[in-house]
């Protein structure tokens, strides 16, 4: 086995194990921490594809931002076992059926789609480099400049909106 394959198996095992532990652990904080580990191993998978940018952005966005907010909320809510709401049996049954249907659909999609397995032609171009990504995203003729700018303005507006929401209203006389 090549070292890459061994790394892949190890990473895949970690991803699956932490994903299952996220669901199975009783303590919500443990769940959140397992989810962080899961995200890390997914970033590792991206690195195996030589997609450095994607891996790093994945770590920044998911592990560095979203999961920290999750942890924050869970820690401040201080969930205990006593507060745990026991779901009625019908909800559980519904959840199980939905999961089975969804997984059947996913397995079928995976079986009928034909993934491209084979050798890729070498073009001599480094497609994972940030320069390449930048030209693809920001080129005004062939690229996605206008959607990109729209998305960035949307994010900026969301951030300013968050700041405004937290602003205290001055008492009007």
């Amino acid at each position: 086995m090549s070292p890459i394959l061994i790394i892949f198996y190890v990473l895949a095992a970690i991803t699956l194990a932490t994903a299952f532990l996220t669901i199975y652990s009783k303590n919500p904080i443990h769940s959140a921490i397992y989810l962080v580990l899961c995200f890390f191993s997914i970033a590792g998978h991206y690195l195996l594809f030589n997609a450095q940018f994607l891996a790093i952005v994945h770590v920044i966005v998911y592990s560095g931002a979203i999961m920290i907010l999750f942890l924050f909320t869970i820690m401040l809510m201080n969930l205990n076992k006593e507060d745990e709401v026991h779901k009625p049996r019908i909800t559980r049954l519904g959840a199980i059926t939905t999961f089975i249907l969804l997984s059947t659909a996913l397995v079928l999609i995976f079986m009928y789609s034909k993934p491209f397995v084979g050798d890729y032609p070498t073009t001599g171009e480094d497609f994972q480099s940030i320069k390449k990504l930048g030209t693809v995203l920001l080129d005004d003729k062939e690229g996605f400049m206008v959607p990109f700018e729209f998305a960035s303005i949307l994010l900026l507006v969301a951030m300013i909106g968050a700041v405004l929401l937290s602003k205290k209203e001055k008492p009007t006389k």
Partner: peptide, 15 residues
């Protein structure tokens, strides 16, 4: 060529 992003990723993990 993504060194600065790497630094930000690590900084955000410091929390």
């Amino acid at each position: 060529d993504s060194a600065i992003l790497y630094i930000f990723a690590v900084v955000s993990l410091g929390v």
